[in-house]
Amino acid sequence: MCRECGCLTHVQGLDPDHATNPDHLRDHGHSHGHEHDHEHGHDHGHDHGHDHGHDHVHSHDRGPLRTSSIGAVSPAHRHLSLESRVLAKNDALAEANRRWLAERQIRAINLISSPGAGKTLLLEQTLERLQGRVNCAIIVGDVATDNDARRLRGKGAPVHQIETRNSCHLAAGQVGELLAHAAPVGTRLLIIENVGNLVCPAAFDLGETMKVALLSVTEGEDKPVKYPTLFHQTPVVVITKIDLVPHLDWDMALCRQNLRQVRPNVTLLEVSARSGLGMEAWIDFLENWVA
């Protein structure tokens, strides 16, 4: 369940009478007790982790199927085996975005964090400091309001908002529709501020060049191991609000250790957008990264 945004409510609203018990599914009357274990030993050798778009179907008629208790099911039943990612369509759209960006030498960051990790303040300060140094563009994913987008305007970079409404993540198609407007000719760095949430955005490739996670020192040092799906995918993690460290029990060494457990070669940057501490290192990092 989406712990960060708690948006299960939208779903429950769809059909309040429907059984929430997962057993409901299995009790549906069919119980063919066969299991099959196809070993598809595909290689995920590349860092990116997705085998995009293979979708070949092998149909094999198996004749009467054996089941443990009911006996043979109808011989008309057959099995189609395939190996296709559920998000294959999103993956394909993300690849199209990635190609579009690469053709224009634009590098894109998909910025992901919990709500309240200081994403918008960091972006405000980042845009101010990059003004005149790197041509930036911003896409903001926000559930309902345009507060974040308004805060980011007037700092030299075009800002576009995607209103995600009930959804707690951005999808590749939404970004793709906006790219040509959002990242005009000459853009070098596109920052996509994803919806505040550590779970859902981690599942949807947007076609970014890399994902960056923010983790504020007001959150636990164990966040990386609690949300490994995200932190495993982020080569760069920015620790925010470090001006608050003197008032907290924040253990930087433990946080670093937890991050390395899920992403051994992670680059860590420690910043305070409020005090400016560490900001120059972050800005230098971005400037070098797009150079």
């Binding site: 099959h36 290689d43 189609l80 559920v86 599942a203 051994p264």
Partner: peptide, 27 residues
Amino acid sequence: FAPCGGCGSAPEIIDGRDLVIRSLEVT
């Protein structure tokens, strides 16, 4: 990502990241 117990190298993940359709039972 504890190092490989055999040789101490950094390992890579080869499976367990995806949500994949495996098979359909159809009539």
